[in-house]
Write a protein that binds this DNA or RNA. Structure first.
Length: 268
DNA sequence: CGGGGCTCCTGTGCGC
DNA sequence: TGCGCACAGGAGCCCC
């Protein structure tokens, strides 16, 4: 599910509802998510602490707790963080706060991950994250990064070590907007094309946030509501349908092991 | 460095 | 209707 715009939407919802609140208890239903020893560590160190800030790095959510502890969450494909009481019992983890509010972590495919980090403890991502696509990536950084690689441009956009936050939906949409084929080697993308792509990416991500993310299947915001950015999609999952620009059929292909859709006439 | 394939899971949609 | 297969917003790992 969630790429940068979806995670940012959830972040804002949680910030609004939970900053300043104190965790009162936690329930775990998925032993794969957290083993008994780890659960004890959470009860000792996360329960009783207030949430002081909620940040985002790429597709990760970072919850700052009192005294320098941090909770890191990654929703992978189908993770959901939903506020409110009387939600379904199929949660993997649930936190209860001092005002009675609850936060439930649902995850159909169970790829999502959660960490509790002690003060100063290392970031859990195996490989370091590249600059955040919206907050840190500048046009110059983007151009030099693209020109340096022989990798195809779509997998390049989605490589979290190079740029963090972009996934399969928004990579496809930005490439369409910039009229560049997903399979083009980075190095073959000219300066002016890269500039166009940078701007398309920024605009795509910002507009998606303004629409509270894309709900294709599983994604819901923290209030369990769907986003509406999917109504803006020009190519994602639209193989065979007419291109909105030239009316020719969009083509479905595989690039870097992932499905992608592009317009063979508009995207060079 | 790059690319392909497989893995972790569960659910859906399609062709036969 | 049933069955099997491909594929799905992610990402790490292994091998070539």
């Amino acid at each position: 599910m969630p790429e940068l715009p979806e995670v940012e939407t959830i972040r804002r919802d949680l910030e609004h509802e939970l900053v300043g609140r104190v965790v009162q208890s936690l329930q775990i239903r998925d032993r794969r998510l957290m083993k008994t020893a780890e659960q004890k560590r959470w009860e000792l160190n996360a329960v009783g602490r207030a949430w002081t800030a909620i940040e985002r790095r790429g597709k990760y959510l970072v919850v700052q707790l009192e005294a320098g502890w941090r909770i890191i969450l990654h929703l992978r494909m189908t993770g959901q963080l939903v506020l409110g009481k009387d939600r379904p019992q199929s949660y993997r983890m649930r936190l209860t706060f001092d005002n009675g509010n609850e936060l439930s972590f649902y995850d159909q495919r169970r790829f999502g991950e959660v960490w509790l980090l002690a003060p100063g403890q290392a970031w859990p991502s195996k490989s370091d994250l590249g600059p955040d696509a919206l907050k840190e990536l500048t046009q110059d950084m983007f151009i030099s990064l693209v020109k340096k690689r022989t990798t195809r441009i779509q997998p390049l956009l989605m490589d979290q070590r190079l740029i963090s936050g972009v996934g399969n939906i928004y990579a496809q949409e930005a490439l369409y907007k910039a009229s560049i084929r997903p399979s083009r080697p980075g190095r073959s993308v000219s300066r002016s094309e890269a500039t166009r792509l940078y701007k398309a990416l920024q605009e795509t991500l910002q507009t998606a946030i303004a629409h509270r993310g894309s709900t294709s299947r599983n994604y819901r915001d923290a209030y369990d509501q769907e986003g509406s950015a999917q109504s803006l999609h020009a190519v994602y999952r639209k193989g065979g349908q007419p291109c909105v620009r030239c009316r020719g059929p969009l083509r479905a292909a595989r690039v870097g092991g992932r499905g992608t859709v592009y317009c063979p006439r508009c995207q060079k």
